[in-house]
Nucleic acid binder design. Sequence first.
RNA 1: GCGCCCAUAGUUCAAUGGAUAGAAUAGUGGCCUCCGAAGCCAUAGAUACAGGUUCGACUCCUGUUGGGCGCACCA
Length: 575
Amino acid sequence: MREFATFEERLSVWTTDAMKSVFGLEDTDVHLGVTPTNNDKFGDYQCNAAMMLAKPLKKAPRQIAQEFVDAAELPDFVEKIDIAGPGFINFFLSNAALAEHVESLERDPHLGAEQVGQGKTVIVDYSSPNVAKPMHIGHIRSTVIGNAIDRLYRFLGYNVVADNHLGDWGTQFGLMMVGFRNFVNEEALAEAPVEELERIYVESYNKSKEDASWRELAKSELVKLQQGDAENRALWEKFIELSIEEFNTIYDRLGVKFDLYRGESFYNDRLPKMIEALEGRGLAKESDGALIVDLEEDGMPICIVRKSDGGYNYATTDLATVEARMEEFDPDRIIYVTDERQQLHFKQFFKISEKLGMDANLVHVWFGLMRLPEATFSTREGNVIKLAALLDEAEARALEMVKASSPDMPEAQQKDLAMAIGIGAIKYTDLSQNPQSLVTFTWEKALNMEGNSAPYLQYAYARISSVYDKYHAQFPKTELSGCSINIEHEIERRLAIKLSRFPAAIRGAAENYRPNILADYLYELAQTYSSFYQNVPFLKAEEGVRESRIRLCRSTAATLKQGLDLLGIETRERI
RNA sequence: GCGCCCAUAGUUCAAUGGAUAGAAUAGUGGCCUCCGAAGCCAUAGAUACAGGUUCGACUCCUGUUGGGCGCACCA
């Protein structure tokens, strides 16, 4: 058993062994471990094996439970064991063991979370905006959810490669080239480069619809670019450079960092070989001039890997990307974070990758579309909300709140706080719900700062910091780590149990690619703390009790801070 | 037409097949002489519909209704 093993792990190992020995079970599919209870009255953990074993053992569940309880010798951290209802076996942890465990977590930089990723590499492919298009609120989910997954896996010890797979290649660049040379407004370009690039694209696109010679010109410029023409290449690189620069200002504001910015173009050279591989394995065939992979036997529509004009598309690029990533990083897993519309595409190219014999573990983490109450976002409708505008608005609203509640704070600090709170609120809104739900955007929801929200958690953290500082001012000589935690009050116990469950929240969030599991946990932890704070005195408690409670505060602060950091949400000692 | 996803309090969201479906917000009623009221305590309110599987179903299966999305050269 590892040093900071959770009670759930320890108990599960114990119940599994004990069940096997008491009932002479060898191999069984029945889950013999424990799960957390959802009600204090049923103890801290429950084992449901008795019900599940009724059939194979041909005995009544309660009888099984009773025989188990009679025969088994309790581990020392269990205070009491109970049989309830149809045959639930409930475990009550001892307060002393609980207190000791919480104390010990202070020595673990990972707060009890097992380093399951040691020696493993994971590539997380997320955000992936298109060059020459401003990021809008549709990009927030991939960026924020992807970044949380990135952080979670790093925390679990994985070597994470965060890759921003930019949309930097494709037919639109022909139109961009001719458009730029004809309609660029240098002032606008200096002011807001990507917005201007988008404007140029739209104008050029509109012109192409009416003007056949314009279309021809765009096409020939595209071919020149593809053939490596120096001038077009330079212009294309300029588009990318301007775009990345602007994306980075957004990423900086969001606290998002990538290890790589490898656009689709990075894999261009591999595309012909990829087609050869498909043909060599007899996977690809001609159809209406295009080269396709027939996936009918796999229950999917055909997948085009080379267009009838000889160009390659999405699927081919993604296959080549997998191949390149396998060669360079040999990852244990590649995680793609995109919206739900791409499910079929990913299923198709995952299948083709398998058929090609690429031994890649590919995971598509999809999230629900973001839409407006009345319609989906579209450039044509002109209802797109830019990501930068959303962040501005969040910070402005947060600043208003900060000024109202802390009018005497220096302005620079107010602004810094407003940033942490505003950005935190936006992120938390997205991270606190199941990623797969469809989201209807409203300002009110996106910038929620009341109730179950980032500011609630940040407030709880700041309040603890304040208590902690006051303690040190009043009792500067006491060495806290030398004082033990004693659990006597009910609310202390609830808080300690919550603290001990942090690793489960982390694992659940990471393994299911659902940061909301962690967000839920943190909210519950903060609620439990608030109740603790309200119901028992800390600084005015008698010596000993006081130190014990301050240590619980310290653990809570560390857990909140770490958890919020994994969601990419910043904390401040004073708000 | 085929396929994927979704439906939980008035509203916005939770709930690895487990016990009495949790929060927030809006409503009502309390709590600053006391560690920060961005808070706490109390109260009321929900599983679309019809079947099925199971000791046990919001969760799994089938059907219905209502929504979102995808399905040959856009990524």
